[in-house]
C-alpha cells in the first residue's frame, strides 16, 4: 500500500520546550492509523504541524508525492487533507447544517457568482443531502436547523467530526473524535469511519480511549514527551513494555 502521509523528522519547539521531537510517521492509504500517548506528549502539535496550523521548526511533511511543509491550512485542504479539532471550534453564528455545508465546496463561494442563486443552488442542494447523511451518522440530524451554540459539549464534538467527514478529503485527521461521547455512539461513529475507509478514505486518529478505538485501528504510533516510542499493529504496540510503562498501565488487559 502507498503512503499517503509521511512526516520526516518533524520537530516543533515552543521557546525552550520541544513539543515534538524528530517524529517520523507514515500513514498508509486506506488505513485507520492511530496516534496515542499521555497528555501533553505532542499529538495535537504534530497534527497542527501537518495541517499548516503551525509551521514545524524542522522536518518535512509529504502528502502523496507533494511536499506540503509549511503550506497554509486552506491549501492543504485543497490537496485533500483535513483535520478536526480536539476542542471543538464551531461557527457559532451558523446553523448546525451550515457548519457542515461550510466545510464543503460550492462554486457560489465566489463573490461574483454568489448573488445569483440559480447558479449555485443545485450544488447547494446536493451538498445538503450529503451533509444530512453525515449529520444522521453522528446523530445530529434532528438538530440541523439549530444554531450551533445551542449544542452540548458531546454534540459539538460530533459536529466537529461531521465537518471533517464532509470535506471530501482523502485523509482526515481526527483529534480525539470520541472524547466525552458515550460508548455506544462512539462505536457507531467508528464503525462509520471503518466503512468510509473501504470507500477509499484514510484516517489518522488521535484518541485517548484506546479500549474503544484500538479495535478499529490498523496501525498505531505511540508518543511520549514529544518522541515516538513505539509503532506497529494494535497488539504489538499495546503490549510493548515501553508503552505500558508510560501510558497504559493496567489498561492493557482490557484490550
Amino acid at each position: 500500500m502507498r503512503n499517503l502521509l509521511v512526516t520526516e523528522n518533524i520537530t516543533k519547539k515552543f521557546g525552550g520546550l520541544v513539543a515534538v521531537n524528530k517524529v517520523s510517521i507514515e500513514v498508509k492509504e486506506q488505513t485507520f492509523t492511530m496516534l496515542i500517548g499521555p497528555n501533553g506528549c505532542g499529538k495535537t502539535t504534530l497534527i497542527n504541524c501537518c495541517t499548516g496550523i503551525l509551521k514545524p521548526t524542522e522536518g518535512r511533511v509529504l502528502f502523496g508525492d507533494t511536499d506540503i511543509t509549511g503550506w497554509p491550512t486552506h491549501k492543504i485542504y485543497e490537496v485533500g487533507f483535513v483535520r478536526s479539532f480536539q476542542i471543538p471550534l464551531p461557527f457559532l453564528g451558523l446553523t448546525v447544517l451550515d457548519n457542515v455545508l461550510g466545510a464543503m465546496r460550492n462554486s457560489g463561494e465566489a463573490p461574483l457568482k454568489a448573488p445569483f442563486r440559480r447558479l449555485w443552488v443545485q450544488e447547494e442542494e446536493n451538498n445538503m443531502e450529503k451533509a444530512m447523511e453525515i449529520l444522521r451518522r453522528v446523530r445530529l440530524d434532528n438538530h440541523w436547523d439549530k444554531p450551533s451554540h445551542t449544542l452540548g459539549a458531546a454534540q459539538l464534538k460530533m459536529l466537529e467530526v461531521a465537518k471533517g467527514l464532509a470535506s471530501g478529503a482523502r485523509l482526515i485527521a481526527l483529534d480525539e473524535p470520541i472524547g466525552g461521547v458515550d460508548p455506544a455512539s462512539a462505536d457507531e461513529i467508528l464503525t462509520h469511519v471503518a466503512e468510509l475507509k473501504k470507500e477509499g478514505l484514510t484516517f489518522l486518529v488521535v484518541e485517548h480511549r484506546i479500549d474503544i478505538a484500538a479495535p478499529y485501528a490498523d496501525y498505531i504510533y505511540a508518543m511520549d514527551l514529544g518522541r515516538l516510542i513505539s509503532q506497529g499493529t494494535p497488539s504489538e504496540v499495546l503490549n510493548d513494555p515501553k508503552v505500558i510503562e508510560v501510558y497504559l498501565g493496567k489498561g492493557v488487559e482490557a484490550c
Binding site: I53, F91, G93, G108, E124
Partner: peptide
Amino acid sequence: SPFGRSLKMIRDNEVSAAAAG
C-alpha cells in the same frame, strides 16, 4: 449564499474556517 457563509465562518473562527478550506 455560500460566499456569505464563508464570511461568517471567518468572523466566527478563523482557524476553523481555514481548516474548512
